[in-house]
């Protein structure tokens, strides 16, 4: 079910979980489109040579995942603010899951706040953020 009116949003509502595509092919396409085509994002061996655990998903892509997740739930929503904290690396080709929960609703301003968390399969938080979103 998608959301189009703020009246349909419930406090504490959980957004559908989104598993972003962190495959090397997808991250390479993103890196080229964003102008961030650097080996640490697109080449596992080159990243390991820098002391990293593998090629990294760029932080700006993780932030893009959060906004995309909101639009999948509320396609016409206007994402006004996304504040993101990078707690640990997000490694290319590993599985991640994004959860979101509505933490505030301002019906007068038609604004809601959503807490977003990107975790790995071990349920360890890699990225978390807060979004302010205008809905209908």
């Amino acid at each position: 079910m998608t959301i189009s009116r703020i009246e349909d949003v419930q406090f504490g509502e959980e957004l559908p979980v989104f598993d972003p595509d962190t495959s090397l092919d997808n991250v390479k396409r993103f890196a080229v489109a964003a102008g961030w085509n650097r080996p640490r994002f697109t080449d596992h061996e080159a990243a390991r040579a820098e002391g990293l655990p593998g090629a990294l998903v760029p932080g700006i892509m993780s932030q893009g995942f959060l906004a995309a997740m909101i639009h999948r739930w509320a396609p016409d929503a206007e994402v006004q603010l996304v504040d993101t904290v990078f707690r640990a690396p997000v490694v290319v080709d590993l599985q991640y899951h994004i959860n979101g929960v509505v933490t505030d609703i301002d019906e007068e301003e038609k604004l809601i706040e959503i807490d977003l968390t990107l975790t790995n399969d071990a349920d360890e938080t890699r990225v978390f953020g807060t979004a302010k979103v205008l809905i209908g």
Binding site: G35, Q63, A67, P75, V82
Partner: peptide
């Protein structure tokens, strides 16, 4: 490039993914 940026992030909304959309724009991030 903007459409590819949006699509690789998982955006589905046409205003970010279809360059012919009348309200086509960059993703908000």
């Amino acid at each position: 490039d903007l459409a590819a940026y949006a699509a690789t992030c998982g955006e589905l909304a046409p205003r970010y993914t279809q360059t012919s959309h009348p309200d086509y724009q960059a993703p908000p991030t």
